[in-house]
Computed example of a mutant assay.
Amino acid sequence: MTDSFERFESPQGRSLAYERVPGEGPGIVFLGGFRSDMAGTKAAHLSQWARARGRAFLRFDYSGHGASSGTFEEGAIGDWAEDAVSAISALTTGPQILVGSSMGGWIALLVSRAVPERVAGMVGIAAAPDFTEDAMWAGMTREERVALEEEGRVEQASEYSDAPNVITRRLIEDGRRHLVLRDPLSVPGPVRLLQGTADAEVDRSVALRLLDHVESPDVRLTLVKGADHRFSSPECLALIEGAIAELLVETGA
């Protein structure tokens, strides 16, 4: 975790840790993934990239993640989307370019729905909209579904941590209230989607479905052969930089 983070209190009473880089707008807001935090490779890299260019940048931890308050297992998609809207509203000025990684791509779409006037464009990195329904719930065995209903939670092995992924009934039920691929989905400004073909967590079909579904003046998908879900190699980081730079040009910044 970065040593330079600050805190603010959200309207929901959550103490959220964040790092803000001052600079010109439109600013860039990084939205992390499920169980990730703002010390991750992509977030830290983009913080330095923005700082070197005098570009405003914000990264933060959702409640129950990283240095923010709360317990991860008590959280859900709606809570984390509220955190994102609160952070953007309190800590940034004007329209922002949202950079959403994995679950952060879903959060970015929910932010676009909630406060479209604050969104200049979006970069989705292995974006995972509706994953609680289309991946977690759809991939459960009958026994896991019964356990979820009766006990309120199930545990599954995680590729990225020794600790298991805890899936709660609330996470699944709340996710159903925030699905974005079942109804019209509009994103203000241009959209760039980046997806690795070797991603074992988010299949390329999700990126193609999002490409077809989202309504925006300019939507483009880049498939990177051999890239995995982390999308953090030097080449992938350069592609993220390039996507953001394209959006800055398109928005006249």
Rank of each mutant, 00 (worst) to 15 (best):
N165A: 05
L194W: 15
R177V: 10
E82T: 12
E201F: 10
I107T: 09
T251C: 10
I107N: 02
I172P: 02
L16D: 00
G100K: 01
D37P: 07
A200F: 14
P26Q: 07
R209L: 03
R35T: 15
E117H: 03
R35Y: 15
L109H: 01
D162G: 13
A43K: 05
L185A: 14
G152I: 05
A127W: 00
E143V: 13
W80E: 04
A157Q: 11
R55H: 14
M140L: 06
S10G: 12
A227L: 07
L194P: 04
F34T: 11
R230C: 01
S15F: 08
R35H: 13
V21W: 11
G66I: 15
E201H: 08
G66H: 10
S101E: 00
D79S: 12
I88W: 05
R145M: 01
S63T: 14
R14S: 13
R51S: 13
D212V: 12
V119P: 02
A108C: 06
L110P: 08
A52E: 15
E150P: 05
H45M: 11
A147H: 04
G94F: 12
A17H: 08
Q195L: 03
R142Y: 09
L194K: 02
V249L: 12
R192S: 09
R59K: 14
E133I: 04
R14P: 02
R204C: 01
V21L: 06
G40M: 06
